[in-house]
Amino acid sequence: MDLLAAVDWHVIWQRIFHPDHVFARALWTTVYIAVLAQLLGILLGLIAALFRMSRIWPLKFLSAAYVLVFRGTPVIVQIFFVYYGANLLFGFTLIPNSLDFGLFQLGGAAIAGILALGINEGAYMREIIRAGIDAIDKGQMEAARSLGMTYRLAMRRIVLPQAARVIVPPLGNEFNNMLKTTSLLFFIGVYELFGDADVHYSTTFQPVEFFLAVSFWYLMLTTGWTLIQAQIEKRLAVSERGDELSFRERVAEAWQPMGAWARGAR
C-alpha cells in the first residue's frame, strides 16, 4: 500500500474527532452564511416570482433581467463584484466593514458573501417558487377570491402555504448546494471550512490529510441536512393523507428533531 503510506492518518483523525477552536468557528461560519444566504435567496426569489406574475410590465422586466444576469454569470464573479465593487459602484458604504449583532459579528467579507450568494440564489429560487405556485390548482385562487379575498390575501393564506409543500424538495437541493458553494467565499477572505483547510495545507503541505478531513465535514453538513429535509418532507406530507394535525403543528413537528438536537448539544 505505497499509495497510502505517505498519508498521516493521525492528522485526519485529529481534524475529524478533535477539531480545534479555530476550526469550530470556521464550521459555524459556513453554516450561518449558508443559512442566511439561503433565506435571502428565498425572499428575493419570492419577490421575483411575484413580480414575474405581475400585470405591471416593468416588474416583469425587472424579474426577467434579474434571472438573466445572475444565472448567466459565474457566481465567483458576482462574489468579487459585490465585495470589491459594490461600495464603489453605489458611491456609499453598502457593505460595511463589520456588523455587530451582539451574539456574533459579521465581517465585511461575510456580509458581501451572504449578499452575493443570496442574490445569486434568488435567481434560481424564482423558478422553483413559480413552479410551486403554478402547481396549485387555479380553483384555489378562484375559491379564495369568491369569498371576498384580495389577490394578496389569497396568495398569502391559500396559495403560498400550499406551494410551500411543492417547493420544499427542490429547496432542499438548493440548500445542499449552498452549503458547498460557501467555500468560494474564502477567495474574498472569509474564514470558513475550506479556508481553514487551505490555511493548514499551505503551512504543512499535507493536502491529502486536510482536504480529506474537510471533505468529511462537508459530507457531515450535507448528510445532516438531507436527514432534516427528509423529516420536513415527511411531516409536510402528513396533511395530504388527511391526518388531524394543524399546519402549524406539522411545521413544529417537522423541526422537532432540530430542537432535540439543539437541546442535546447544549
Binding site: 390548482d137 380553483g139 384555489q140 378562484e142 375559491a143 379564495a144 377570491r145 369568491s146 369569498l147 371576498g148 379575498m149 384580495t150 391559500i158 402555504p161 400550499q162 409543500r165 396533511s239 395530504e240 388531524e244 394543524s246 399546519f247
Partner: peptide, 21 residues
Amino acid sequence: ARQRAEIGMVFQRFNLFPHMT
C-alpha cells in the same frame, strides 16, 4: 372583493383549501 364577499359560490370541484380543516 367587497362585492364578491356578498355573493357565495359553490364549485363543481369543491375547491376546499386542503391545508385547512
